[in-house]
Design a protein around this nucleic acid. Structure first.
Lengths: 142, 142
DNA sequence: TTATAAATTTGTAATTGTTGCAAATTTAGA
DNA sequence: TCTAAATTTGCAACAATTACAAATTTATAA
């Protein structure tokens, strides 16, 4: 259980109710949610919460490096409370997004990078997850 | 100079005027353009060209693997006529997108990938290009 | 504590990239 | 040349995101 308040403060972000709620959700739900998923999840316990606030908050969190923004889904921005260097896989069939640990290879990604100042690295895989791949194979055989 | 017509046919795409124009532009302008950049560039020589056709064509080209879609820019989809495995760097200041060759490391990216079927791999870097980094440094010193 | 300023949140309106759709046009095959 | 299929087109609709200004909350200083 990560201490959300301390986490925000350590990133220079004042821990308001709303920011705590958004950040806490991301830290405790590693599902790479969209704005709407976050908003919908928090609505019940925070009836006055505005969608705009979720947008504003996420923008701030990303700017300050407390949250990562994923470019894996063109329809909606995805967010990740885990800012450590790891890859992502998205199934084009069912839409699930999963983490891929990089072990030692992560450092290699930094060294092979561009000249200039690197602020973020994303390694994205798209394709079919094992389940969907199997389903597809079955459909083609019958 | 790549033979656009043969390239399209080899990907199972009938080479219409419009498709040729879009594909040819991508092959000859490695600038990772947006839909609008492509549309604007082709408008003069094809006055009847529709923006929707550019969208339709790019969708088809990506589906057939003739063109790569880049997730590096959230505001507009970017396209790349070079579908070989290489990384991209985008400067957050000036917006320029440049290619990064992966040499031998490319294969490594495949092996470390997820279970299931991999259909595309993207390695994206964001940050400041050398020029913008220098400009920023100068501003901070004065 | 109280007054004042600054920061944050909120709701609505506007914007923008993209898609849906049906008519018009072009192309291929008989 | 005729007919069907594929492609293109323009416009309307959509959905994610941003702009903005008012309302609210929080911090600071008197």
């Amino acid at each position: 259980m990560v201490r959300t308040k301390e986490y925000l403060v350590s990133h220079g972000i004042r821990p308001s109710q709303q920011r705590m709620a958004v950040m806490s959700f991301l830290l405790n739900h590693p599902i790479h949610p969209t704005v709407d998923q976050i908003y919908s999840a928090l609505c019940d316990s925070m009836p006055t919460l505005s969608r705009t606030t979720v947008y504003n908050t996420l923008k701030l969190l990303v700017e300050r490096g407390a949250v990562a923004s994923l470019g894996i889904d063109r329809t909606s921005e995805r967010f990740d409370g885990d800012t450590s260097l790891h890859a992502h896989f998205m199934c084009e069939q069912c839409g699930v997004i999963e983490d891929i640990r990089l072990e030692g290879t992560g450092e290699c990604l930094r060294t092979m990078g561009p000249k200039g100042e690197i602020r973020s690295i994303q390694l994205l895989y798209k394709g079919l997850c094992p389940q969907c791949k199997q389903t597809e194979a079955l459909q083609n055989n019958n």
